[in-house]
Nucleic acid binder design. Structure first.
Lengths: 133, 133
DNA sequence: ATATATTCCTAGTAACCCGATAGGAATATA
DNA sequence: TATATTCCTATCGGGTTACTAGGAATATAT
């Protein structure tokens, strides 16, 4: 239950990898080799991380990816959300109007509480915390 | 992210439904009608809840399902685990030996912490809490 | 200039899980 | 005996996931 897709795990491993490098930058090929991730698959992941502003990229020779923020300022939630969107145990977290039961569903608060618990944990942890674990 | 399968939401709605009834028992057809759940699909869910000891069943006419424990003594974690197994964000929660990185993976503790946070929330909430929300 | 290294873009694919349906067998009651 | 119910097995379409393939765009080095 609540298993995290491989791409998200890959994304986090990639971010940790970058954070541990002196200049916090590397090519997709380097990261892939070091972390045992399929290169082509990782490319797509890095592109996504870039679109979400977590890394920046340079194309062409001597190009690569580099962290855009200090690891201590980067919450794990931001990485998770970049890959998978917001934490949403049930679709009605966004408003009772989405509820097929017309808001007459008792468990909703329970799910909202779960979302809060998860969000809290993820928001509190930074990339630095994970890197230095 | 972390979306809960419909069957688990159905299971919880069914359990809440039972908990609110005077004698805490009903047929699958009744629950399905009240909660807007496909009957045949719910049947399989109820069977599973029974196998995990959360409800008991009687076959034949006047049969149905009934709660086996007091709602106040039944953690939401037990329902979730009945449907989806233990909370396992990553496969290596069961031991570093499962890790493809040979335990050299920094994020592991991070994921274990997430599991703990989720487990804690789910263990603390009882069916009664949700029913009375 | 040209070769090379890199990101970026688009498509495709095999496998899996999920929600749901179908049909009926077993079983208990009225 | 008729009926209501749980229980069992099989199937199916659709979506997602992880991954692969092929190349276009772009920047650097020589």
């Amino acid at each position: 239950m609540f298993s995290v897709p491989a791409r998200t795990q890959y994304a986090i491993r990639a971010m940790v990898h970058l954070a541990r490098l002196p200049d916090r930058s590397a090519t997709a090929a380097e990261i892939a080799a070091a972390e045992g991730i399929p290169v082509k698959y990782l490319e797509g992941i890095m592109t996504r991380l870039k679109l979400c502003g977590l890394v920046e990229s340079e194309r062409g020779k001597n190009g690569g990816y580099s962290l855009r923020a200090d690891p201590g300022e980067l919450s794990m939630l931001s990485i998770v959300e970049a890959m998978d969107g917001s934490v949403k145990p049930v679709s009605c977290v966004e408003g009772a109007s989405v509820c097929a039961q017309g808001g007459g569903c008792l468990p909703r608060k329970f799910w909202l509480g779960l979302k809060d618990a998860i969000d809290l944990y993820l928001k509190d942890k930074t990339l630095r915390d994970v890197t230095e674990a």
